[in-house]
């Protein structure tokens, strides 16, 4: 009970305090400077818009959440497999790594239209955008983890005539678990951004996702609803990040008895 209280005071109270301070300042700023509601709606108006559109926002939350989670899961699997391939030889790494960097540097808004041309509008294309931009952090972190293995342990495996395959499965992959989890944490946030951007281009089929709502609401100058949608997107990002972190910590606890 005491520890719960201390945890609340140290970790929950400060960000909560900051949050309310900003909301209050925001409220008085809109009142004192008499800012037009279509430029900057006050927090009360935003809350009102949120409640009024709760059903729509909730559906968007679920839609975008599903796209982000599928995109993230795909990049976790594919990224780890690619990293396993990279870990097998420096020649493979040198030949393919530049193309992995391409994933990181290509402006996603530039290739999103291409994806629409190739794969059409709809769920699969949104997922693809989310997948492409969340892949890089998994590849880099997993590759680093697979290569940073205690050299004595590698010697131990060599002395036991371990095959490449055994060394990968029984040594490299388990050693890389903490790095893969770090990569997954970064990728989870990016996957949500990818899903929202993807909906800008390919969300016209379901007409549900948060990205689609943002795109629809902005030109109508329903700034309060726009704000509410942005906040919903943020909550979605935080939720997925927290979920991935939680699962990651559970795995680390089981495997390493509490230490990463």
């Amino acid at each position: 009970m005491r520890t719960l209280f201390r945890w609340f005071v140290t970790y929950i109270l400060p960000p909560l305090g900051a949050f309310f301070t900003v909301v209050i300042l925001w409220h008085f700023a809109t009142v004192i400077f008499d800012i037009k509601r279509y430029i900057l709606p006050g927090p009360l108006l935003v809350a009102e818009a949120g409640v009024k559109n709760l059903g729509e926002l909730w559906n968007g939350f679920l839609m975008t959440g599903a796209e982000a989670i599928v995109g993230f899961a795909a990049s976790l699997c594919v990224g780890t497999l690619v990293a396993c391939l990279f870990s097998q030889s420096p020649v493979i790494r040198r030949s393919l790594f530049p193309y992995a960097i391409f994933l990181q540097t290509v402006p996603i808004v530039a290739i999103a239209p291409l994806i629409v041309i190739w794969f059409g509008t709809g769920f699969q294309s949104v997922v693809l955008v989310s997948f492409i931009i969340s892949l890089f952090p998994i590849i880099t972190n997993a590759t680093a983890g697979l290569l940073q293995v205690d050299p004595d342990l590698l010697d131990l495996f060599r002395l036991n005539n371990a095959t490449r395959w055994q060394t990968l499965l029984k040594l490299r992959l388990p050693s890389a678990v903490p790095s893969i989890i770090t990569g997954a944490r970064i990728a989870s946030g990016v996957a949500v951004i990818g899903a929202i951007v993807g909906e800008f281009f390919a969300g016209y089929v379901s007409r549900k996702g948060l990205g689609y709502l943002i795109l629809q609401t902005a030109p109508q100058l329903k700034t309060d609803k726009l704000f509410a949608t942005v906040i919903a997107s943020t909550i979605l990002g935080l939720t997925i990040f927290a979920l991935v972190s939680l699962i990651g910590n559970l795995i680390l606890n089981r495997w390493y008895d509490g230490e990463a």
């Binding site: 342990l153 131990l156 036991n160 055994q166 029984k170 678990v177 390493y256």
Partner: peptide, 18 residues
């Protein structure tokens, strides 16, 4: 030079597993 994710027993079994 033990595998931290394995118990003592399973560390000692490693040479046979390999």
């Amino acid at each position: 030079t033990l595998l931290p994710w394995r118990t003592v027993r399973s560390n000692v079994s490693l040479p046979f597993e390999l």
